[in-house]
Amino acid sequence: MAVALTSAALLAAGCSSSGGKGSEEKSDGAGGGKGVNTPRMTIAMVSHSGEGDTFWDIVQSGAKDAARKDNVQFDYSHDDEAGRQAQLVQSAIDKKVDGLVVTLAKPDAMKGVLKKAKKAGIPVITINSGAEFASEVGALAHIGQDEAIAGEAVGEELNKRDRKKALCVIHEQGNVSLEERCAGAKKSFDGEMSTLNVDGTNMPDVQSSVEAKLQSDSDIDSVLTLGAPFAATSAKAKDKAGSKAEVDTFDLNAQVVKGLKEKTFGFAVDQQPYLQGYEAIDALWLHSYNANELGGGKPVLTGPQIVTEKDVPRLEKYTERGTR
C-alpha cells in the first residue's frame, strides 16, 4: 500500500522511480586527499581536439587528477585548426609555463613553435598521435597510441574471431589517424576490408549509411567503428538491415561497456586516454622534481588494449564517471 501511494505521489509530481540522477551512486574520485608539497608549477596542455569530444574529456580528467596530486596548476586549451593550435602553444610560452603537453596531429605546424619552447627552456611532452615526430621536435617523451599498431591489433583480433569481410566506418573524412587505424586493420586482417565515409555530426546519417552499406553487401560479417559513439548507432543499423555482422569499436564509453556486457558488441580497443593525460602531467612533475625522463627516447604506448565482455565488471563504474 505504502509503495503504491509513494509511486502514485511520484507520478503525480512527474517523477521517475527508475534511473536518472536519483539512482546515481556517490563515486569516489582520485585526488580527494592531500597531494605533494613541492612548489606550485604551471603546466599547459594544447590539443588538436574539436568541440565536445568525449575522448579529450577523459584525457583532461586524467591530467586534472595528476595535477591535483602533484600540486600543479593545469591549463587546457584546444583548436582543431593547426595554425591556431600553434598560436595557443605560443601564448603558453609567453605565459612562461613550467611545462607543455602538446599533441602532434599536425606536426609541421607545431615544429616552429616547439623550437621556441625549447629555446625558452620549457620541457615538452607530446601525447596521443605523432610519435614519429616527437624526437624531431625535441620532446622529452611521447605518450600515446600508435594508430597503425592499434589497427593491426584489431585486424588480428578479427582473424581470431574468424571474420571474413569487414567494414571500417570513418566518421571524419580525411582525418589522418582514422585512416591509419583502418589501414592498420586492413594490413593484418586476412579477410577483405572495405571503408565507408559517414558524417559524424549527423547520427541519423551515420545510421542510414551503415544500414545502406550492409543492405548492399550481405557478406559483411563485422563492422568496425573508429569512435565509441558510433558503435551503438552501427549496432542499430545492423539490426535494421537484418545483418548478422558483429560490431567492434575503437575507444570506450559507458554505452560501449554496456553493449559489451549485453553482447551487442564483440570487442573494443582502448587506448586509455586517461593515462595519456595523467602520465604526461606526472612525467613533467617528475622531470622537475627528480630530473627523470620517461621512455628512453622511445614512445610510451598507452594502448591498444583489447576489451571484451570479460573485462566489463571491472570497467563499468570507471566509464560511468568518465575516466575510462
Partner: peptide, 14 residues
C-alpha cells in the same frame, strides 16, 4: 529516443 545518449557536439553543418 532513438539513441538514448546525445553527443553535445552534434548537428553542426546540418
Amino acid at each position: 529516443f532513438n539513441y538514448d545518449v546525445v553527443q553535445s557536439g552534434e548537428g553542426v553543418g546540418n
